[in-house]
């Protein structure tokens, strides 16, 4: 694995205020990295520094080994990006927009342009003025523009913004393909956590300009113990709670009406059910009341805020 994006001690100070504070991480080829954080956390600022729109106060960003500060042209030629909204020249057709960018890169042929247009599914409308495009179509054109020069690094700010569910699914699949088949490093930012979880390999959480957590998505998904809720018979509820306490020392069920709520690992659940039915108790329902990614995300950011 080769790191295509390396952030080294990246710091940005604007008017004496540290907007971004010593970011250190790298993104490898074939990886989709999600950038997560509340508004104002510095996601866009970090992305702007990665693509050279903003200068770094301290540190450096290397793209495929080239410094964005001292070797801008070498570094940026490996990047395809959409920063915030995909704003295009509205008075030009989609195709003319692509031509603008094709002229600024080496070796973008007409064939390649047709290829990316087909890839994002804009063949039918590409010769219409961008003025007449829906937000989703502009987003597609934005992605087409970012892929034109076959970059090794793709940076997409809110790539699914404005797309319909079918479009979102398509783009998501597309991003996965780019990472897996073309071995690109992809950075996406989004406020939709469910989106992130389906697209990304790793998620980094940014808060108040600091990277407070980077972890593989898998770890987010199964965090070990989950909370389960079990519905039993009214009269048997108390007995059931006691049975569990006795048999499983590390499970502490809380009782409310006819429901037991407890934290347990997934692998222990069959044993619990088996045990209770063995005691002749009726179980009507067992369900996981797992926290959504959102809740966990909020937990994480809120607790850090207190610290």
């Amino acid at each position: 694995m080769k790191a295509l994006i390396q952030l080294e001690n990246v710091t940005k100070t604007i008017k004496g205020k540290k907007i971004i504070d010593s970011l250190n991480f790298s993104i490898e080829e074939g990886e989709v990295f999600g950038f997560l954080g509340p508004n104002g956390a510095g996601k866009t600022t970090t992305i702007r520094m990665m693509v050279g729109l903003m200068k770094l106060t301290e540190g450096d960003i290397l793209i495929s080994g080239h410094s964005i500060q001292t070797e801008f042209e070498e570094a940026v030629q490996h990047i395809g990006a959409i920063v915030e909204n995909p704003e295009m020249y509205k008075f030009l057709s989609g195709y003319d927009n692509l031509k603008q960018y094709a002229r600024m890169h080496k070796g973008v042929s007409r064939k390649r342009m047709d290829e990316v247009v087909k890839l994002v599914g804009l063949e039918d409308r590409i010769h219409d003025k961008v003025k007449s495009y829906s937000l989703g179509m502009r987003q597609r054109l934005g992605i087409a523009q970012s892929l034109l020069h076959r970059p090794r690094v793709l940076i997409l700010d809110e790539p699914t913004n404005g797309l319909d569910p079918a479009g979102i699914k398509e783009i998501r699949q597309y991003i996965r393909d780019l990472a897996e088949k073309e071995n690109m490093a992809v950075v996406v930012s989004s406020h939709l956590l469910s989106e992130m979880e389906m697209m990304c390999d790793r998620i980094g959480i940014l808060q108040k300009g600091r990277l407070i957590n980077v972890q593989p998505v898998r770890d987010w998904m199964d965090e070990g113990t989950d909370t389960y809720s079990m519905e039993v018979d009214d009269v048997e509820a108390e007995a059931a709670a006691d049975f569990i306490r006795e048999a499983f020392t590390d499970i502490a069920p809380a009782l409310k009406d006819n429901r037991l709520t407890f934290k347990a690992e997934k692998k222990d659940i069959p044993a619990v059910i088996h045990f209770l039915t063995g005691k002749g108790l009726a179980i009507y329902e067992v369900k996981k009341v797992s926290k959504t990614l959102e809740e966990r995300f909020l937990d994480l950011t809120e607790t850090r805020e207190v610290v």
């Binding site: 693509v51 050279g52 729109l53 801008f72 042209e73 070498e74 940026v76 030629q77 990047i79 990006a81 959409i82 920063v83 915030e84 909204n85 995909p86 704003e87 295009m88 020249y89 509205k90 960018y101 600024m104 890169h105 080496k106 523009q145």
Partner: peptide, 14 residues
């Protein structure tokens, strides 16, 4: 004003 400056300045052109 158009916001296109962002896409203009992320090209391998100084």
């Amino acid at each position: 004003t158009w916001g296109t400056v962002k896409l203009l300045l992320i090209r391998p052109v100084s």
